[in-house]
Computed example of a mutant assay.
Amino acid sequence: MDLQLPDGIYTQIVELCKSGDALVKESEYLFAKEKYVSALRLVPEKHQDWEAATWIYVAIGDVNLKLDDKEKALKCFINAVQCPKGLGNPYIHLRLGQLYFEQNYFEKAADELTRAYMGAGIEIFMEDDPKYLEFLETKINI
């Protein structure tokens, strides 16, 4: 079910996320995270019902990765995959796979990385450490 946020709330969320994105470009990750968290707080309860929560969780997860907080990043991507259009999103599955790999959950990592590959092809792996693609190549035929 796709719920629509009221226009005013949606506009506030978009503005906060744009501010967060600008801060990320300036490597101001903690301030960016504050903007994204503020945006998430505007999403009504039961975040998993709102598409906006999907991309906000992804943004917070990415910032947590930049801050080298893999545990919080994993929680964000787990939340994102449970939100509308999260399951099947190759980027979310890529990040989940990478984070599971880093925590030595290799079976889960293989599953998530396979989902990313099936959804977006080999290109999705090109901007990240080659170890993830090398690992996947030991699990499936690419």
Rank of each mutant, 00 (worst) to 15 (best):
Q82D: 07
Q4Y: 11
N89K: 10
K46G: 05
L74M: 10
P6E: 07
E134W: 02
E127I: 03
E137M: 05
F77P: 00
Y57G: 00
K66C: 13
A22W: 13
K35T: 12
D69V: 03
A110T: 00
K18R: 13
Q48I: 06
Q12A: 06
I124G: 10
P6T: 01
I60M: 06
F31T: 14
D2H: 15
E123C: 06
Y117W: 15
A80Q: 05
N141M: 07
K131V: 12
F125D: 09
A80S: 03
M118K: 05
G97I: 00
E123T: 14
K66H: 14
L133I: 02
I78L: 13
W55R: 05
E51M: 01
L30F: 07
M126R: 00
D2Q: 14
E26N: 14
E15T: 12
V63R: 03
T11I: 12
K35R: 13
K25D: 15
L23A: 09
T138Q: 08
S27L: 08
L42D: 13
Y132H: 02
S27K: 15
V24S: 07
K25R: 15
D69I: 07
E34R: 15
N89L: 05
Y105E: 12
Q48P: 02
N89E: 03
V81C: 03
H93L: 08
L3E: 14
S27V: 09
D49F: 02
Q82Y: 09
L94A: 08
F135A: 06
R41F: 12
L67A: 09
F135R: 04
K72V: 10
K25C: 08
E15V: 11
L94Q: 05
W50M: 02
E137R: 10
N141C: 04
G119T: 06
Y91P: 10
A32E: 12
L87S: 02
A116T: 12
L5P: 02
Y105K: 04
Y57N: 03
D111S: 00
Y57K: 01
